[in-house]
Design a protein around this nucleic acid. Structure first.
Lengths: 203, 203
DNA sequence: GGGTGCATACCGACCAGTCGGTTTCTGGCA
DNA sequence: TGCCAGAAACCGACTGGTCGGTATGCACCC
């Protein structure tokens, strides 16, 4: 509908104490390794080398930790997306930049991605709505890029933009299940291959 | 390396009592909805309207239920794959048939797929190895099809066969996160669109 | 009588979260 | 500079409840 793709805003980073960060780091690693329900609060405080009192001083609940992880992940993704859009690239280059950037960022923060894909629907209603709204903004913005390319005639219209978006972004969500940081291919190489694959399908 | 793609065998189905089936059904639905660790054995026996004694009469452990679910899923996928390969189609038609079949089968057994993608690494070592070996057979067989097409010159070699396989099969694994049986598009329609997308990238 | 198919009562371990208390930091005032 | 009051940071024992799993018994059938 619109002729230009709107740039999503990102929220400002929040300063946090060293203890707070240690707790979040420990929670992130344990959630990624064992899942949210498979991780005990006791396990988190032991890994972070703090006490339970400290954890509940900074966070309201175990769910709170999960939300912080999601929030930082999505905020970063939206910021990256905004940065690419701000460059005003033509659709093909924009899609390539968004996809390679997203893959690189996901590979770099693979634990957050793991937690997200596995436990994304384990939040209470209010936080769930917030996370979903952010995800939807990303989805709609990306689809807008594909639609623009299709309107401009540089992308094939064989596959509907919505399906392209689902498939392309879904591929990235699957990344935690097969990407290994110590594997034979660098993240940059994989990002090129995957983005190239998607663009080839859009030719 | 090989010139023909070998057909993987499937294992024979096992007969089970009505109580056994009720337990497995309840476990499947609860695991899909709340995850393995988020589901209690008590919850399963209540949903299945049996007692704990009955459950532990038929199954050794909670893990045992999970393995049964995985096993039936993978056995079905390997059987479908074998059926397609047995038709001896040329690579393009074979890839299309495998992908559409896999997507349709995944859509039809969406709960099993949900459980698999979420909790696939929650098994003990022995069962894990068994599951992984089966998955690997599927992966290697599919990659073989892509390689054959690339050798025959009907597929582009722009993206390595391994990456194509990871991306194509990964897309299917993501299906539980976006496919809705009551959505606007039928599973068959989505299967066509997604398979078409992959084949377009292989042109 | 011995195996199968359950039911029931129960176990110790562990769960997320709480609460009263203590230490450490910070700013204001003499 | 020295002191103090209040706030923020943190401690860890404890709670009610749930967890996966087990021990035992009993009816029914070959």
């Amino acid at each position: 509908m619109t002729d230009t793709v709107p740039v999503p805003e990102s929220s400002a980073p929040v300063r946090q104490s060293a203890v707070e960060r240690r707790i979040l780091d420990a929670a992130l690693h344990l959630f990624a390794a064992r899942g949210f329900d498979g991780t005990s609060v006791q396990g988190i405080v032991e890994a972070a080398e703090v006490t339970k009192g400290a954890l509940y001083h900074y966070f309201d609940s175990k769910d709170d930790l999960l939300y912080e992880i999601y929030h930082s992940l999505i905020a970063r993704q939206l910021a990256d997306l905004g940065a690419v859009l701000a460059r005003g690239l033509p659709p093909r280059e924009a899609v390539r930049a968004v996809l390679t950037g997203l893959i690189l960022s996901t590979a770099e923060h693979i634990d957050e991605a793991k937690v997200f894909v596995r436990d994304k629907d384990r939040l209470d209603d209010a936080r769930m709505r917030s996370v979903r709204a952010d995800r939807r903004r990303y989805h709609v913005t990306f689809r807008g890029l594909v639609e623009q390319g299709q309107r401009d005639g540089v992308f094939s219209t064989a596959t509907p933009a919505e399906t392209v978006t689902i498939v392309a972004l879904g591929m990235v969500n699957q990344l935690p299940s097969w990407y290994r940081p110590d594997g034979p291919k660098t993240a940059a190489r994989l990002a090129d291959e995957v983005a190239g694959f998607v663009l080839a399908a859009l030719d």
